[in-house]
Simulated assay, not measured.
Amino acid sequence: MTDQKKISLKKEKDKSTKRMLAIIVFLLAFFYISAFWSQDWTIPGSRVSPLVILYRMFIVPFTSVEYLEKFPVRISEILETIAIAYAGGVAASIIAIPIAFLASRNIGGHFNYIGKAILNAIRAIPSIIFAILFVAALGVGPYPGVMAISINSIGMIGKFYAEVIESIDMNTVDAIRASGGNRVQAIWYGVLPQVLPDFASFSIYRFEIDVRASTILGLVGAGGIGVPLMIAQQQRNWEDVGVILIIVIVFVTIIDKLSGKIREKLV
């Protein structure tokens, strides 16, 4: 092929690329404008202004004895929420390990698509759906929340675990197999020592997410502080809503700081 033909082919490719980019930009702009103009931007009226609601939520709880006395009760409920997240996270961290090994390319081999399909299916379903199903089956309480958190967390934790397993140094595993070790011994002595610190780090990070998720799951009756939050919101008791939100913000901040320090020590 002559240089002239190469230059002409390159120009044709550049033109086709520019045309494709122009089409993509046009379609994105068209869909964005269509979605923007199709929305109803009218704001329904309200008898209470947002400033009044914010005042009732974040000022009144600190100035009223009635709501100051509710803080110990709500703290016990947030502790139940944290316990739900902890129990669900521990169960998910353990169950996700074999699924992650199956989903990893270097360990699962030709059957890794089965593990990936399981993890993808779990991640595709929101945790609130699991909570609704378990509340319907088991009744209102913390146990449905633990079940919903544990199953939903398996999908994300298992994905992280599988990616860590795929990035390990396989020379250690191959050396154990070459010296006569079986597959279980190769995983126990060659894989787990390399991945356990990252496994622990990801599990702690997921625990932070599960604490926030447990609060939301309580809105459908899955235990914890979400139940009184739902009742207070329905009754428009903004002072009680504020007490709950203040406690949630404080505890989530504390957990975030502590888990961040622990992850720094592990990784």
Rank of each mutant, 00 (worst) to 15 (best):
G221I: 02
D240V: 02
L219R: 00
M230K: 12
A136M: 15
A175D: 10
S150Y: 09
L245D: 07
E208C: 09
S214T: 09
G139F: 11
I204P: 12
W188P: 00
A131C: 06
L219Q: 10
M230H: 05
F199H: 13
A175Y: 04
D198W: 00
K159E: 10
G141C: 04
V140K: 13
V164A: 13
R177H: 12
I157W: 08
G145R: 05
V164R: 06
Q194K: 03
V184P: 01
A136N: 15
L219D: 05
V241C: 01
N237V: 07
G190P: 11
N171K: 14
I165E: 06
M170I: 11
S203T: 14
E208S: 09
W188H: 13
A200G: 14
G180M: 13
F202D: 01
I244G: 02
Q194N: 06
E208Y: 02
K159H: 14
V146I: 07
R177C: 10
I176D: 01
I151D: 14
I157S: 08
I216H: 04
G158W: 08
Q234S: 07
N182K: 10
E163M: 13
L133P: 06
P142T: 12
D169W: 04
M147C: 13
I187F: 01
A178K: 04
I149Q: 07
W238I: 00
R206G: 03
A213N: 15
E163H: 02
F199W: 13
L229G: 07
F160N: 12
V241W: 06
Y205L: 14
P228E: 08
I209H: 12
V135R: 03
R212G: 15
Q185N: 15
G180I: 12
S201N: 09
G224F: 01
M230T: 05
D198F: 02
V195P: 00
I168A: 06
V164C: 07
L219Y: 09
W238D: 00
P193T: 07
Q235I: 02
A148W: 03
L245H: 00
D198E: 10
I132W: 12
R183E: 14
D169H: 05
L192D: 08
R236F: 15
A200N: 09
R206A: 14
L192Y: 14
R236G: 00
A222G: 03
V211H: 06
I187E: 01
F202P: 02
V243K: 02
G221E: 12
A213E: 05
A232N: 08
L217N: 10
Y143L: 15
